[in-house]
């Protein structure tokens, strides 16, 4: 790895700059159309997270963390989980059953529409946010922290500190 310029070569960086928006958009599409076409919150969340992982690999950590910080990712993770739970509890509050599909399910216009399946699209969005944020968090945690020998002892250390010590 080059010390002065973090990340990969110019070819990879240019291709990433062109493709990152499309990959992100495809992930959002897979999440939003989860109740109509194959896909859903889990698969779409992984695709969205792969955008940020691609950014980290090709441009280095600072660029990806500038787009989605560690605190922001952690908050999004908790937000997605709580939103999913809130939808489930709202079913209890409105209809008396946990995970009741309380929104109108079959619109007169037909079934194959974006707003058709009641709470299922909302659940997909919540799971998508949660999965994307948590996969990005796992990648960042595993990429930032290294085991290093410090004075004969093996220690967990962040890459920032290692750079400072050099």
């Amino acid at each position: 790895m080059n010390e002065r310029q973090p990340g990969m070569s110019l070819v990879v960086q240019t291709v990433t700059r062109w493709l990152k928006g499309f990959i992100f958009l495809y992930g959002v599409y897979v999440i939003l159309y989860g109740h109509l076409s194959p896909g859903g919150g889990f698969a779409g969340g992984v695709i969205v997270a792969s955008t940020f992982i691609l950014l980290t690999l090709s441009f280095g950590r600072e660029r990806a963390l500038g787009k989605l910080g560690k605190l922001m990712a952690s908050e999004l993770d908790s937000f997605g989980a709580l939103l999913f739970l809130l939808i489930a509890v709202l079913g209890t509050a409105i209809g008396g059953t946990f995970f009741l599909n309380f929104i109108e399910k079959n619109w007169p216009t037909g079934n194959f529409h974006l707003f058709s399946a009641g709470i299922i699209p909302l659940c997909n969005i919540a799971i998508g946010i949660k999965v994307a944020a948590s996969l990005f968090m796992i990648f960042i945690i595993l990429a930032v922290i290294r085991v290093q020998e410090v004075r004969g002892k093996r220690k967990l250390i962040t890459t920032e500190k290692r750079r400072k010590e050099r």
Binding site: G34, H35, L36, S37, P38, G39, G40, D77, S78, A81, F84, L85, A88, F98, F99, N101, K105, N106, W107, N111, F112, S116, A117, G118, I119, I120, C123, N124, I127, K130, V131, S134
Partner: peptide, 29 residues
């Protein structure tokens, strides 16, 4: 008819078996 979702997989994991999916999300969290 019951869920309004054309994708039967989404209908099962998020409507009929939503509790399972909540458990899976909790495991990930």
């Amino acid at each position: 008819k019951e869920t309004g979702a054309a994708n039967i997989v989404a209908a099962v994991i998020l409507d009929y078996r939503g509790y399972d999916t909540l458990g899976e999300a909790t495991v990930l969290f």
